[in-house]
Design a protein around this nucleic acid. Structure first.
Length: 315
DNA sequence: ATATGTGTTAACAGGGGATG
DNA sequence: CATCCCCTGTTAACACATAT
């Protein structure tokens, strides 16, 4: 501690000395230094201009991941699973494991119009609605809007109620650890689980934490099944995409998986496929690693994501 | 070897208090 | 009153680990 203080003091002293010296200089000497500084600045700019920008390692950075939901669900006991089913998240119990194809997702994001919430691809405009979210993820697209607005006291109170020991944002890791320990299937379990799937799959942020205010989705456990989850997820995604595009970022928040599966469902690579409306729901339970792989191979073989050979289906 | 997932960290921005 | 500066929380990018 003393060393740090000493160091800070020394820093201040040196700074003072420099300031003093500078102030004592006559105008001509100051001018000379200023000229030199400007020159250095210009030289640096030139140098920088000549260094080629190294290409980005990844086209897209997202924390939307099915893997951890998949493995979490497998650890739940029967009672816990049936509670999840009752809450309307049964689709998550039968998940397969998918990796996102980042290039495809990046391309979809670039062709997404967040103002009209539609994909402009393959010469067509495909609007994405909350019904599409329900069709793909199997979560309710009707009912009461979800609000995560509340006072700090209320949020604090809820954290205490569910014995969520956090100050500020909630680390996803904490939720995961708690879920691994918990054997009961009461409100405490439900809260952890909801927060976990929201933070990892439905509304992932760009970091390993989720917003503190998200605990408010557990405000009323009895109401969970009556909430419009699809709208919540879609709104969060649009917000994430907007931020990603406006700020030209590598990272993106929101359920990007939704975009990829939407594309897979509506853009056909074969002629005689079953119509969208006739397929088994929710679609997320159909798409596994092998299915994704086959589809990507097919897409590449016919000339890419917007090849003229694909056909488009509407719901 | 390459892609992907997760944890870490440096940089950033905004608020609020001190200072001249 | 304006400006400066520190503090704090946030976040983007990096780095590492793991899987394929």
């Amino acid at each position: 501690m003393d060393i740090i203080l000493e160091y800070e003091n020394l820093k201040l002293q040196v700074k003072d000395e420099i300031t003093k010296k500078w102030n004592n200089l006559d105008e001509d000497s100051k001018l000379e230094y200023r000229r030199e500084a400007r020159e250095n600045c210009e030289n640096y700019a030139n140098l920088k201009h000549n260094i080629p920008c190294k290409p980005r390692k990844v086209s897209l950075d997202t924390r939307c991941t099915l893997g951890c939901v998949h493995s979490m669900v497998n650890k739940l006991n029967l009672r816990q699973k049936s509670i999840i089913q009752e809450l309307g998240f049964g689709s998550l119990l039968d998940l397969k494991f998918i990796n996102l194809d980042r290039d495809l997702c990046k391309w979809l994001i670039d062709h997404f119009d967040q103002n009209s919430c539609a994909l402009d691809i393959c010469g067509k405009r495909l609007p994405i609605s909350t019904e599409d979210v329900e069709y793909i993820l199997g979560i309710k697209s009707t009912g009461v809007d979800i609000s995560i607005v509340g006072s700090a006291e209320e949020i604090n109170h809820m954290c205490q109620q569910y014995r969520l020991n956090v100050e500020g944002d909630i680390p996803i890791k904490l939720l995961e650890d708690e879920l691994n320990k918990i054997e009961t299937s009461g409100n405490e379990f439900v809260s952890y689980f909801l927060l976990f799937i929201v933070g990892t799959l439905l509304c992932p942020t760009t970091k390993s934490y989720m917003k503190w205010s998200f605990v408010l989705i557990c405000r009323n456990i009895e109401e969970i099944r009556n909430l419009n989850w699809a709208k919540f997820v879609l709104d969060f995604l649009i917000q994430g995409l907007r931020k990603h595009k406006d700020n030209n970022l590598v990272v993106v928040g929101g359920c990007v998986l939704l975009l990829m599966l939407f594309y897979f469902e509506h853009v056909n690579v074969e002629i005689d496929v079953e119509h969208v409306s006739k397929r088994l729901r929710p679609r997320i339970c159909f798409w596994g690693k092998e299915e994704v792989k086959q589809r990507m191979l097919k897409l590449h073989s016919i000339g890419g994501f917007d090849s003229p050979k694909v056909t488009i289906d509407f719901l």
